[in-house]
Amino acid sequence: MAIGSLRGLMGEACRAGSVPKDKVEFVVEHYLAGELRGRGAHGIAKFCFEAQFFPQREGCPQIVRENGALSVIDARREIGPISAAYAVEVAVGKAAGFGAGIVGMINTQRYGILAQWSERIAEHGYLGIVMNTSRAEATIHGGRTPVLGVNPLSFAIPTLNEHFVADMSTTLAPMGVLWEARRTGGPLPHGCFVDDRGNPTADADAATSAVVFGEHRGFALSLLVQILTGSLFAFPMGAEVDSTWSTGYTFLALDPSFGGQVAGFPERNTQLVDAMRSAVTRDGAAVRLPGQVSRERADRALATGTVELDDTVYRRLQARAAGDFACD
């Protein structure tokens, strides 16, 4: 599928969904970036799903509480990429003054990949960390009861070259994989979801929970993300998260100069990344670094000007471009 054609259809969908004219390109490029990086569940498929909420925006995001380095934002149901960009701006501003920006946001539409927002923070020379929760849709290894959100996490580290970025869910697969499987009738990846009895299932209709990665170590990390996107800002957690609007988001910008690293932060990070790049597996191959595959996929897609897209997703995109936000 030609990338230019997809951009055109996504732009038409944004205009049909009353996205502000000066933000159409920004919203399109955000979701398209997820598709180009091979993150289909966070790319055009998610754009098609989130487009139904575009007309529900109530206004520009605003800070409702702040104290020193901390701010809490009511996004006023703003479109996800737009509200995220505002939260990044607030976090970076706080970091410039206090050495850290700790921003919680709620009442927003969802965005796609997290990496773009941690990268934006890193562009200012800061360590960027971005995360959010979701409905209670995840259970621990061997469990059957969903108790945590999928709780994705991204961080970006400034280097002398392109920023080093990691972006992951704390479950073996994101919920977007399940949603798409239900729409298309396709199978789920092995071992990533369980049914209501806790048994692994590849049947999208039978699946009730995503499985947290790394057994209890992953459970502990997911729990930390839950706290940082929940009770830290008095946001809902677990079963209290009952909609898009009660989902909590967190953006952290950390200035190394306030921690004693007055100069040389990117240089030291570059040395570490270079050392990791020189590491090899027991077979002699280079160790794959976080974000490497996504970046290579995006480079190939941009070089060819095309990207593979499922036919059902393409039909949904055509419907959105025609102003139909109900069909699925």
Rank of each mutant, 00 (worst) to 15 (best):
M1W: 08
I3S: 03
G8H: 10
L9Q: 13
R15F: 01
V19I: 11
V19M: 05
K21A: 15
F26P: 00
V28W: 04
E29N: 13
G34Q: 07
G38P: 13
A41S: 15
A51D: 02
F53V: 02
P55F: 13
Q56N: 12
E58V: 11
P61V: 07
I63Y: 10
V64S: 09
V64H: 07
E66S: 09
G68Y: 01
R77S: 03
P81W: 00
S83N: 05
Y86Q: 03
A87E: 04
A91R: 15
A91I: 14
A95C: 05
F98P: 01
G99H: 11
A100C: 11
T108V: 12
Q109A: 10
G112E: 02
L114V: 07
S118Y: 13
A122V: 11
G125D: 06
G125S: 11
Y126R: 00
V130E: 05
T133D: 07
E137C: 10
G142T: 03
G143K: 07
G149S: 12
P152I: 15
S154E: 09
S154L: 09
F155D: 03
A156Q: 10
N161K: 15
E162V: 11
H163I: 05
D167V: 15
T170I: 08
G186N: 04
P187T: 00
P189C: 00
F193C: 00
D196K: 14
N199V: 13
P200I: 13
T201K: 01
A204H: 08
T208E: 01
R217W: 07
A220K: 08
L221H: 05
L224C: 14
V225G: 08
A234L: 07
F235V: 05
F235M: 07
F235D: 00
G238M: 13
G238W: 10
E240V: 07
T247L: 04
F251N: 08
S257E: 07
F258L: 11
Q261R: 13
P266T: 02
R268M: 02
R268Y: 04
D274S: 14
V293G: 01
D299S: 10
V307W: 00
L309D: 02
Q318C: 14
